[in-house]
Nucleic acid binder design. Structure first.
Lengths: 252, 252
DNA sequence: GAGTGGTCTAGACCACGAA
DNA sequence: TCGTGGTCTAGACCACTCG
């Protein structure tokens, strides 16, 4: 089937084409799990150059609806946009009170044979030996701590070195460097908790006050869990702040 | 100055060029606030085609270091990457217990002449009249509410209609549709709070228990605040979940 | 070996901003 | 009016996957 696409002057061709493809995916012409036509086929079908086709498919990739694989093709992942925002700015932990520079004081580390609930959380087989690292994070002023952190490092990387004293780099960054791996995905869960007596003492906060609990899973390119980090912040000393930018040009 | 860039076979030219440009920006050759050479000049300097130059600069744009403006040029915004992640997946509010579908029951709305602290929060002049909308959000099962929401709509959009009963769409989406505007940026602050008696009663939670407070600012293309939404969730009924993907190919 | 997506070239026209 | 970045064409070679 050949479809005419408007001449230049209006909306760019590649956006029109992207909109069309989104519509055709949503209506089931290209089912989830299947392949789109090849780039050259799309060129023929729509009478446009390969550049235009590639720009169009790039939009779908950006929306998380399609992946491309050299030698294989463009596979449909979802019938609706998965990605909400295309850019996440201003890091992952900003602080109130303009205290941006922080450091983690390592209190200890130990090899840990994971069992039961922790094994479930780590999606690990019971008996695997992970590295457990814990400590407190301070601002530069180094008054009261802004969080307590427990991190669990996967067996493959438990030989990581240099984890002691005052760390100014993130643990995952150390792992990336020492093991030549690349963190590709981060899953984050945020909850509110009530600080129990032990936690309150460590954080120099009042027992029964609120805390912000962040749980982060760092995954590599093969979606293997590299590190799990859990940090608990006293509510009055920490606000988690993030910014998103939406970049969509494909009208739905 | 002419710089040789490796022939094909190794790292793609556009990534090499991007790395070079990042380095030159960081070392001050192209100062923050200034313009990069034009695309054609970069073509000459590096002996590559415009395609390669554009792909390279696109990397810097993705990192938040550069913006491009037709008719003007490519302006340097920052000497280091600003963007941490290139994709934010799985929406902005996921729930525990597999309760994904929620609806907001509007309890009331009223025009509000903002003053004092609220005016500051909204970055508005005292006396401006905003629209205040509030309600409770329920899961499909419709048992206890999962959050209470207060939203403030900028004067320009306070005539929004259709805000009543049970809403299944986000307020910002309604605004986007009715006023043909596009939300470009969202700033989000997340804190833990302790629920006071009034909040606990509304949320059907225990006074003194913890709550998760999300504050979201929706900005349009001109960075004007369109809506401020504040929602408070009982800690035991809600976990905020998000996923990020890092997509960087430029080695620093 | 045939076909895929990834990279790259050398052109071209356009809308827009600045002088 | 001139130069900018945005879009677009028609080619090309490559590494890779798969039969």
């Amino acid at each position: 089937m050949t479809v005419k696409i408007e001449a230049p002057g209006g909306r760019p061709r590649y956006l029109q084409l992207a909109t069309t493809l989104v519509h055709e995916i949503r209506t089931g012409r290209y089912p989830v799990g299947g392949l789109l036509p090849t780039e050259f086929e799309l060129c023929d079908q729509f009478g446009v150059s390969r550049f235009t086709v590639r720009e169009a498919v790039k939009q779908l990739v950006q929306m998380g609806m399609v992946t491309r694989q050299p030698g294989v093709g463009s596979r449909v992942l979802a019938a609706a946009p998965v990605t909400q925002y295309t850019q996440t700015m201003s890091g992952i932990t900003d602080l109130r009170q303009y205290a941006y520079e922080t450091s983690l004081e390592i209190e200890g580390q130990a090899l840990l044979e994971v069992q039961g609930e922790l094994a479930d959380t780590l999606d690990a087989s019971p008996g695997e030996t992970w590295l457990h690292v814990w400590g407190l994070r301070y601002t530069e002023a180094h008054d009261a701590p802004i969080c307590m952190t427990d991190a669990y490092v996967a067996p493959a990387f438990r030989s990581v070195s240099g984890l002691s004293g005052r760390m100014t780099r993130a643990l995952y960054a150390v792992l990336e460097e020492q093991f030549d791996l690349q963190i590709k995905t981060v899953h984050q869960d945020i909850r509110a908790v009530v600080l129990d007596k032990a936690a309150a003492r460590r954080l120099d906060a009042k027992p029964g006050s609120a805390g912000l609990r962040l749980e982060r899973r760092y995954l590599d390119a093969r979606d293997e869990l590299v590190e799990l980090a859990i940090s608990v912040h006293p509510a009055d000393r920490f606000t988690y702040r993030e910014s998103f930018r939406r970049d969509w040009q494909v009208s739905m």
